[in-house]
C-alpha cells in the first residue's frame, strides 16, 4: 500500500512516545527483550509487576485496534524449523547482547550510544544476509 510509510511513521512516533513515557516517568529503558528477559531469568524480580503491566499494554492495544482492521495477515512462516530456530536465536541473541530493536535501536541510537549503534549495525547486517541467503539462495523463507 502507498500509505504504508505514513503508518510506519505514525507507529514509530507512538513507539517513541511510549519509550519517552517509560524513561521520563519511570526512569526505565523501554527495551522489549530486557523487559521480557528479566522476567524469564529472574534478574527483574524486583520490578516484575511493572514489567507484566507493560507487557499487558503491549498485548491489549492491538486487541482493541484489531476490529478497526478486520483482519491482519502477518505472513508468518509455518515451517517449524524456521520459527523455532528464529525464536531461539532472537531470544538468546538479544539477551546476550543486552538489547534488541527497541532497546539498542530506538533507545540506544537516540542517546548516541556506541553500543546501541554497533548492535544495530550487526543485527541489520546479519538479518539482511540471512534473508538473502534463505530466500534467494535456499528458497526456505
Amino acid at each position: 500500500m502507498e500509505q504504508d510509510w505514513i503508518w510506519g511513521l505514525v507507529g514509530g512516533l507512538l513507539i517513541g512516545t511510549g519509550g519517552a513515557v517509560y524513561l521520563l516517568a519511570n526512569g526505565r529503558i523501554m527495551g522489549a527483550s530486557g523487559i521480557i528477559g528479566g522476567l524469564v531469568d529472574g534478574t527483574g524480580r524486583n520490578s516484575a509487576t511493572e514489567r507484566l503491566i507493560f507487557l499487558a499494554g503491549v498485548i491489549l492495544l492491538p486487541i482493541l485496534l484489531y476490529p478497526l482492521y478486520g483482519s491482519v495477515d502477518t505472513h508468518v512462516s509455518s515451517n517449524p524449523l524456521v520459527i523455532i530456530a528464529g525464536g531461539l536465536l532472537v531470544g538468546a541473541g538479544t539477551r546476550l547482547a543486552n538489547g534488541c530493536t527497541s532497546g539498542h535501536g530506538v533507545c540506544g541510537i537516540s542517546r548516541f550510544s556506541l553500543r546501541g549503534i554497533v548492535a544495530t549495525v550487526f543485527y541489520i547486517l546479519a538479518g539482511g544476509i540471512t534473508v538473502v541467503l534463505f530466500r534467494h539462495l535456499l528458497g526456505v523463507i
Binding site: 498485548i59 484489531y66 508468518v76 538468546a92 541473541g93 530493536t101 544495530t120 550487526f122 543485527y123 523463507i141
Partner: peptide
C-alpha cells in the same frame, strides 16, 4: 554485544519477528 546482535539478526531475518512485535502479535 557483537555475537548476540549477530545471532539476533539471523533469527530476526529467518522469522521476521523481534521481541516487541512477537508479544504484540500474540492475540491475532
Amino acid at each position: 554485544l557483537v555475537l548476540g546482535s549477530t545471532m539476533f539478526g539471523a533469527g530476526w531475518g529467518l522469522a521476521g519477528l523481534c521481541p516487541g512485535p512477537a508479544i504484540a502479535s500474540l492475540s491475532y
